[in-house]
């Protein structure tokens, strides 16, 4: 599975990419495969406050719904409106066109609390052993 090195990750399977002050977020390839066919994404509202590790979005498959947690705190500055009509983008291109939202980070130090690609991969392996 692909976990790009430049991204950081959460235990709850979100990824984050730093773009200056801003952080773009989505869900990982592992998460996308576990959920299987994404049929709907409820993205947060622009301007909404996000708190690290608190739910801000919801992803739905046919038979389940999953909370998506903010990798970092701050204000939601952009959301991916394409997901409304094309939720399948999450399955097709989870690190690209399937991004969820962008956060204007209020506490840059939180970045360092996130996992590196290597740590994340290890974490998944441990999880699947359990």
């Amino acid at each position: 599975m692909n976990f790009p090195k430049e991204l950081r990750y959460t235990k709850s399977h979100e990824w984050a990419r730093r773009e200056g002050e801003k952080v773009v977020c989505g869900i990982t390839e592992y998460a996308q495969k576990e959920i299987s066919d994404v049929v709907f994404v409820e993205v947060p509202k622009r301007g909404q406050a996000a708190e690290q590790a608190k739910a801000v979005a919801v992803v739905e498959s046919v038979k389940a719904a999953f909370d998506i947690y903010a990798p970092m705190s701050g204000k939601v500055s952009q959301v991916n409106a394409d997901l409304e009509s094309r939720p399948e983008l999450v399955n097709q291109d989870c690190y690209g066109q399937g991004w969820f939202f962008e956060i204007e980070a209020s506490d840059p130090s939180e970045w360092d609390k996130l996992m590196t690609a290597e740590e994340y991969e290890k974490n998944i392996q441990n999880e699947s052993v359990k």
């Binding site: 049929v39 709907f40 739905e60 498959s61 046919v62 038979k63 389940a64 719904a65």
Partner: peptide
């Protein structure tokens, strides 16, 4: 369809 809103999936949510 759009059943993920419903009680048998979302339970308390």
């Amino acid at each position: 369809t759009i059943q993920a809103r419903e009680q048998h999936i979302r339970r308390e949510r």
